[in-house]
Computed example of a mutant assay.
Amino acid sequence: MHLSPDEIIYWQLGFVKLNATLVFTWLVMFVLVLSAWLITRNLTKNLTRSRWQNGLEILVETTIQQISEAGLSHPKRYMGFLGSLFLFIATANLLTLFPYFEAPTGSLSTTIALAICVFISVPYYGIKHKGLKKYLLSYAQPSAFMLPFNIIGELSRTLALAVRLFGNMMSGTMIIAILLVISPLIFPVVMSILGLLTGMVQAYIFFVLASVYIAAATSINNTKSSSLNNNAQSKET
């Protein structure tokens, strides 16, 4: 039993390793790119549309609505980044239904990389929306005494994003492996379904928290930022 796909090494030359995390990360990206090309190559504005186009439009509209509900006034501006986060995590977790597939989200290196992307995007969108001076001053709100605490909070929530996703995916894999030893016929099927549901929920939580963090960074009203963070915590629980 492997705790992380990082432990599965397919090829190694010195310190250079090709592990399952890299292989299946590229596989997920290939699936997403190929699916996007196949679905969008025959887009039409006519009333008669393919099921794939209808499904894509539903996905896009739902994602935009969720971004808007997180507090972002122009959700289409953030659709590319936040939508990509959700699709990558959701697809990686969904593909665990196939035998021998190792979800890259079960690797701490992958979840940290995703969290770092969110960490960088928050000041990027904050500075773009407010300007550098106003964004930096927001760390000293409601008083300069809160500056170190706000900085620590920014770092800790990034770490929490990475560890939460990694912990949930790793625990699900371990439980399925244990049940496979105890009862190889019944429990693994049930746990695989529950694991898939958990994976989708984790993708949604990661997406919502990233949206809320960006909304808080771009919000001029500090009270609104506080309420957005509270909403994020309630969705997380």
Rank of each mutant, 00 (worst) to 15 (best):
K133M: 11
Q141F: 06
C117M: 15
F88G: 03
L94T: 15
T105Y: 08
A140E: 11
E102W: 13
P104G: 07
P104T: 09
A115W: 10
Y125K: 00
A92I: 04
Y124I: 13
P123L: 12
S138A: 11
T91S: 12
P99Y: 12
F119V: 00
P123N: 08
T110N: 01
L94I: 13
I112D: 03
G106R: 14
L136E: 03
F98K: 02
Y124S: 09
C117K: 00
Y78E: 07
S107N: 08
T111E: 04
L132K: 15
Y139Q: 02
L114H: 08
Q141M: 03
G131Q: 08
L136I: 15
Y78M: 02
L136H: 01
I116C: 08
F119E: 05
E102S: 14
Y139D: 00
L95T: 10
F88W: 09
T111P: 04
P104V: 10
A113V: 07
I127G: 03
K128T: 09
G83Y: 10
L94G: 13
K128W: 09
G83H: 05
Y135I: 06
S109D: 11
H129C: 10
M79C: 00
T105K: 08
L85E: 02
I112V: 15
L85H: 05
Y78L: 14
V122R: 09
V122G: 02
P99T: 13
S107E: 07
T91A: 11
K133C: 01
M79R: 04
L97T: 14
L82F: 10
Y139V: 01
I120S: 02
E102K: 13
S143R: 07
Y125P: 03
S143V: 02
L95Y: 06
T105S: 12
L132V: 13
I127S: 04
K130N: 15
M79P: 00
P123G: 09
F98P: 01
K133N: 10
A103C: 12
L136P: 01
M79H: 06
S84R: 04
A90Y: 13
H129W: 05
Y135P: 02
T111V: 07
T111Q: 08
A115M: 05
A103K: 11
L114E: 03
I89N: 06
F81W: 07
S109A: 15
F81Q: 07
L108H: 06
S84K: 04
S107L: 12
V122K: 02
A92E: 05
L87S: 15
K134T: 05
H129V: 07
T91N: 03
G106N: 14
I89Q: 09
S121H: 06
L136W: 12
L95Q: 05
F81C: 00
I112H: 07
L85D: 06
A92N: 11
A115K: 06
P142Q: 06
F88A: 05
T91M: 13
L136K: 10
V118S: 07
F119G: 01
H129N: 14
T110Q: 06
A90C: 07
F81A: 10
Y125N: 03
C117R: 04
A140Y: 01
A115E: 06
L94N: 07
S109R: 14
K130R: 15
